[in-house]
Nucleic acid binder design. Structure first.
Length: 1123
RNA sequence: GCUGAAGUGGUGGAAUUGGUAGACACGCUGGACUUAAAAUCCAGUGGUCAGUAAUGGCCGUGCGGGUUCAAGUCCCGCCUUCAGUACCA
């Protein structure tokens, strides 16, 4: 009897389906508790999006691994939950609907049918009775329900969890909002309890919306007016839409958002207690982006009463200024040598702008200007400087040249006894300032190094503070940046651009005026959209300052910043920083925050990069929101009226008015009295309201599906309490790493929210997670020769005449190894065959173009079926092409690339199953390499596992049928068995599936060599193998006379006694190099071993008379002789 | 730039706490069976040198150092590849 995989696999797949072999029991579902008194184990795959292309060989990799683990756990006595379903809302179905007019539900259904067929053929032990589909109203009813829960919740920072909105309302009634410690929108205004009660209902709702965990907000999006849709960042290439190349602008739209930022810290902390891959945790940590620092408020001094005398320096002037600083006159240079680096009594700067005046030297700390006399506008200068609170000292060239020390003494004297006294501390937090700029900084210790500020061009303050003279330039700049997508802006790091606003901020400690610029290196949606620029300590600030000629004060002791900013922290001593001078980074940081808090213009703060997630999509094929609008305020539909089912539309495009596709629905209004969705015509009625037109994003349904599987058919609840209590969380989750910062972060967020609300019992949904690596396709290449006439050749024949004679030629890979060789080989071939006149050969240049060939036309020796290649429709042009073979074969080139249709390297699992069977496919996918690694697929390798299965079969079955005996197994046979038990169990626990396949092969090879046919060995072997190759093992198991499925048979127990050996082949090394082996009894002591080894004649030969210096013996391991 | 992972025969990959590098396969070469092919079975297969041969020597885990009786494995410094991510203040 031959191994017939087809028949066996079909039979057993039918058996499993008919007997519901893999149906998991819930505690409440059976009176006798069934399997539910066993310990539970929940193995989950990331459910697939059912795409039209179907599965390729890379998709099932993770499913096979999880299936092996699930089956293993069943053998180990667990009640295993191993479900599967479909993430069936998604873009491709919608796109297809737009093109064909077919309803996405229809195409999705068809795709699911295909998927299911493909999956079934591989023999997974899924419990299909719990299948979920995110696009099924019975499922998304609960997605809508969770949305309502989020809407009805706020985040209380004091209790550090989400609470019902009712508790917030009662606080508002009692105390207003000033005592509330909540995560809320930035621009919430304080109000008292009286004020709260006085607000209208709509006003109250607007305020509550600022606190809810899901809320409406104006969010900047990439809007493509021509496509009438919002585009994701990666749908934009070079500022135009990827599809169609239409212009894209940044536009504000009202959208639903999720306040995931409230959970930033808990999402970070939670990573500690889950067993997920470190790289994945790292990328989540990175994404959350916690940074510790301070918020600092800078007052703005808007346009000055001095009007036009205020700064008006153009770039040119600034550039000139820069020049001036470098080119000092002789006297200027002499004096600067004495003043610089704090040689004088205080720190001076040279060639500094104050207002629109360029002064020679200034000490900002002491408000003292030193300049050479004889300037034309001396009167105006004196007046302006006095007004600004500066003390002016005028000196002459002659004085300096005569005695610079005398001048320095004069300056010092002025510093000590200033004639003009300025207000000691700035009015930094005074109420008089009209505007303030809040910034977040991680380096409050460098605050004295601030020499300017930069706002994002979109910053709301920009329009308010810009001075008349700068308005034009600023507006032009804003317009230019608005055109660029965010991604583009971020990608373009090299260009430094920005515009001065004309306004100044006051340094909160020194009161010094610092220029306020706008620049697109500052991002509107990170931090506050503004930075305090410390050019000496931040490279971007440094570059900006250099580019625009802004001062770069150095506040680091003994650090040279003439070339680049100093960004290091450790070991840095702060200087020129008032009370922070002389302190190290850590102390300065603490003291700076302490002082800021004391003086009231700043406070310590932890900032997160994680932004609230936009939850609206202007699409059709997604979950509708259970929301209608009354007086412009969103209202939730009561949960008992859910689901709100996606309405029919005639087209899946946005409306002409730019509304989402749901704007086309004719029945999309909420009758608040009849409690149902009604025709839009009834909107005239006072009790009928418009429904939300957006739909939910793809991640909505996938953020909680793992909970639904626990009780997938529950009509009355999200999941029953008992099911949640029993299954709790996913024990093992397998899927791709591409979901690291999307699905896996959002799902953790929802789980924590549901936990806060007491809906689920644990706050992390997956204990352990494994990322499977990608399977790459092994593309096949043919090499096409293309002829060109070389440049600069003077030939009387036209190029065409020369080239026309040359046919298309494909060269076999084994004819050449480099491009140069390729050219020579082709030319020789063409000349030999008479296609190319040898006289022209020198004029012709041959280039090598590799083209993808379909991998299905290539055999295991990389030989191409040339005739089949020519027959392919895409190769119409090559009917007459010549194939330059070698040894009668056309050999293709090989390269591993991502599997994709366009690369003709996709391998369909159906074909593999057809030819070799599901068991071979399963074994082979595991045998390819470590689960988490990317590895290339080469179908030829499958013959190895296929012949393994045939060998296995032969151990049990010969030409007369079952050939298994009940005789006692030999010692040798038991040793093989137990060695295998031990290794396979260890491998499965460590998810090292590739090595256990090798172990099975070794076992079968050994048992075949031993001619073993003992049931005592062969029966347990089947159980070991059954998670990997379930069909053949079921078949052989039943052939051994068992009536029940093998799937829950107890896993064989390893007995160490079978592995005990009495002797060991010791490797004997000399100076660490293994020379020969020597078999010695294992119970030999060190001395006995040494004696035996040294007495051996091979040892004597190796030593050649030299006495060993040292003999190292590790009993049971190795002997090493040093000589 | 930053973060993470990884570099081992012609190929995919093995190798416990440092202890016989290349398990198990693919491919290749030779042989058996066959009219032939497929399938199957047997043998060989890291490089190199010596030898008719059995066999033996030397070199070998990206590169350069180091620790050790002993290094693919540990330490230091580089190089390369892949993946993720980025003006994050």
């Amino acid at each position: 009897m031959q191994y017939n995989h087809k028949e066996i696999e079909e039979n057993w797949q039918k058996f499993w389906a008919d007997n519901q072999t893999f149906k998991a029991t819930n505690p409440a579902q059976s009176s006798d508790q069934g399997d539910a008194d066993k310990p539970k184990y929940y193995v989950l795959d990331m459910f697939p999006y059912p795409s039209g292309a179907g599965l390729h060989v890379g998709h099932p990799l993770g499913y096979i691994a999880s299936d092996i683990y699930a089956r293993y756990k069943r053998h180990k006595g667990f009640n295993v939950l191993h479900p599967q379903g479909y993430d069936s809302f998604g873009l491709p179905a919608e796109q297809y609907a737009i093109q064909t007019g077919q309803h996405p539900a229809k195409t999705t259904e068809a795709n699911i049918t295909t998927y299911r067929k493909q999956l079934d053929k591989i023999g997974f032990s899924f419990d299909w009775s719990r299948e979920v589909r995110t696009s099924d109203p019975a499922y998304y009813k609960w997605t809508q329900w969770i949305f309502i829960q989020l809407f009805n919740s706020w985040y209380n920072k004091d209790t550090d969890k989400a609470e019902d909105i009712a508790t917030l309302i009662s606080i508002f009634k009692k105390d207003g909002n000033t005592t509330v410690n909540a995560v809320a929108d930035a621009e919430t205004k304080p109000f008292s309890s009286e004020a709260w009660k006085a607000f209208s209902k709509t006003e109250q709702e607007a305020i509550l919306l600022q606190y809810r965990l899901t809320y409406l907000s104006d969010t900047e999006v990439n809007w493509c007016p021509i496509l009438g849709t919002v585009l994701a960042n990666d749908e934009i290439v070079n500022g135009v839409s990827e599809r169609g190349g239409h212009p894209v602008v940044r536009k504000k739209m009202t959208q639903w958002s999720m306040r995931i930022s409230a959970y930033a810290q808990r999402l970070l902390d939670g990573l500690e207690k889950i067993d997920w891959p470190q790289p994945l945790k790292d990328s989540q940590t990175n994404w959350i982006g916690r940074s510790q620092g301070a918020m600092v408020s800078f007052d703005i001094e808007v346009g000055t009463p001095k009007g036009s005398t205020d700064i008006k320096l153009s770039y040119k002037e600034l550039e000139a200024l820069k020049e001036l600083r470098l080119n000092l006159s002789k006297a200027e240079g002499i004096l600067w040598d004495e003043l610089k680096n704090k040689k004088g009594a205080a720190k001076f700067r040279k060639k500094y702008t104050i207002g629109s005046f360029l002064v020679d030297y200034v000490c900002l700390a002491k408000n003292t200007i030193v300049e050479f006399s004889g300037k034309e506008d001396e009167g105006a200068r004196t007046a302006f400087f006095a007004k600004e609170g500066f003390n002016v000292l005028r000196i002459t060239n002659e004085e300096v040249i005569e005695s610079v020390l005398k001048v320095v003494a004069k300056i010092n004297n002025t510093l000590q006894f200033p004639t003009v006294v300025k207000v000691e501390k700035p009015i930094a937090n005074s109420k008089s300032a009209a505007y303030k700029i809040d910034v977040f900084t991680t380096r409050p210790d460098t605050i004295f190094g601030v020499s300017f500020m930069t706002l994002a061009p979109e910053h709301p303050l920009v329009s308010k503070i810009v001075t008349g003279a700068q308005k034009k330039a600023v507006n032009a700049y804003i317009k230019a940046t608005a055109k660029r997508s965010e991604r583009e802006r971020m990608a373009d790091v090299k260009t430094i651009s920005g515009v001065f606003t004309g306004a100044y901020a006051l340094h909160p400690f020194t009161g010094e005026k610092v220029q306020i610029w706008i620049g697109d290196y500052v991002l509107a949606n990170y931090g506050t959209g503004a930075v305090m620029a410390v050019p000496c300590g931040d490279q971007r600030d440094y570059d900006f300052a250099k580019h625009f000629g802004i001062a770069i004060p150095n506040i680091f002791e003994g650090i040279d910043i003439s070339e680049a900013a100093h960004t290091g922290k450790e070991g840095t001593i702060i200087a020129n920083s008032d009370f922070l001078s002389g302190l190290n980074y850590k102390k300065a940081l603490k003291l700076a925050i302490f002082e800021m808090e004391k003086r009231g213009f700043g406070y310590g703060k932890i900032n997160y990069r994680l932004r609230d997630a936009v939850f609206s999509r202007q699409r059709y094929w997604g979950e509708p929101f259970p929301v209608y609008y009354k007086d412009g305020m969103p209202q939730m539909i009561d949960e008992k009226h859910l689901p709100i089912v996606l309405p029919a539309v005639e087209k899946y495009l946005p409306t002409e008015a730019g509304e989402p596709p749901l704007g086309r629905a004719t029945s999309w209004a909420w009758d608040s009295r009849g409690k149902k969705v009604v025709s839009n015509e009834k909107l005239k009625n006072k009790t009928v309201f418009p429904l939300e037109l957006n739909t939910m994003p793809g991640w909505a349904g996938s953020s909680w599906y793992f909970n639904r599987y626990m009780d997938a058919n529950n009509q009355g609840a999200f999941v029953s309490k008992e099911s949640l209590e029993y299954w709790k969380e996913v024990d093992l989750y397998i899927g791709g790493s591409e979901h690291a910062t999307g699905h896996l972060l959002y799902a953790r967020f929802w789980q924590k929210f549901l936990f806060d609300k007491g809906i689920v019992p644990v706050d992390e949904f997956a204990k352990k997670l494994i990322n499977q690596g990608m399977i790459l396709g092994t593309s096949a290449f043919v090499y096409r020769a293309t002829a060109f006439v070389k440049n600069g050749c003077d030939i009387d024949k036209s190029n065409d005449d020369v080239l026309a004679k040359i046919p298309t030629l494909f060269v076999s890979k084994n004819n050449f190894s480099s491009d140069a060789e390729f050219e020579t080989v082709v030319k020789n071939y063409l000349s030999d065959k008479g296609y190319l006149n040898p006289n022209f050969a020198d004029l012709v240049m041959i280039t090598n173009t590799p083209l993808h060939a379909d991998v299905s036309l290539v055999n295991s020796s990389d030989e191409l079926d040339v005739e089949a290649f020519k027959k392919q429709p895409i190769n119409q042009d090559y009917q007459k092409a010549i194939f330059f073979l070698k040894d009668g074969k056309y050999v293709v080139g090989r390269e591993a690339e991502k599997m994709s249709k366009s690369k003709y390297n996709v391998v369909n699992p159906d074909d593999i199953v057809e030819e070799y069977g599901a068991d071979a496919l399963r074994l082979f996918e595991m045998f390819l390499g470590p689960l988490d690694q990317a590895k290339p697929w080469k179908t030829s390798g499958i013959s190895g596992v296929y012949s393994f299965l045939k060998k296995l079969w032969k151990l049990y079955i010969d030409e007369n049928g079952v050939a298994v005996s009940d005789e006692k197994a030999t010692k040798e046979e038991l040793k093989t068995l137990h060695k295998t038990i031990k290794k396979v169990a260890e491998d499965i626990e460590n998810f090292s599936f590739n090595t256990s396949v090798a172990t099975f092969m070794i076992a079968v090879n050994e048992l075949t060599a031993l001619k073993c046919n003992k049931k005592e060995v062969l029966a347990p072997l089947l159980v070991l193998l059954s998670p990997y190759a379930p069909h053949i093992t079921e078949e052989l198991w039943s052939k051994l006379g068992n009536k029940e499925s093998i799937s829950t048979v107890e896993f064989p127990v390893f007995e160490a006694k079978h592995l005990v050996e009495s002797a060991k082949k010791y490797p004997i090394s000399f100076n660490g190099k293994m020379r020969f082996t020597l078999e010695l009894p294992l119970d030999f002591s060190k001395d006995e071993i040494e004696a035996a080894v040294l007495a051996d004649e091979k040892t004597i030969a190796q030593l050649a008379g030299v006495a060993p210096k040292k003999v190292i013996i590790v009993p049971g391991k190795i002997v090493n002789i040093v000589h």
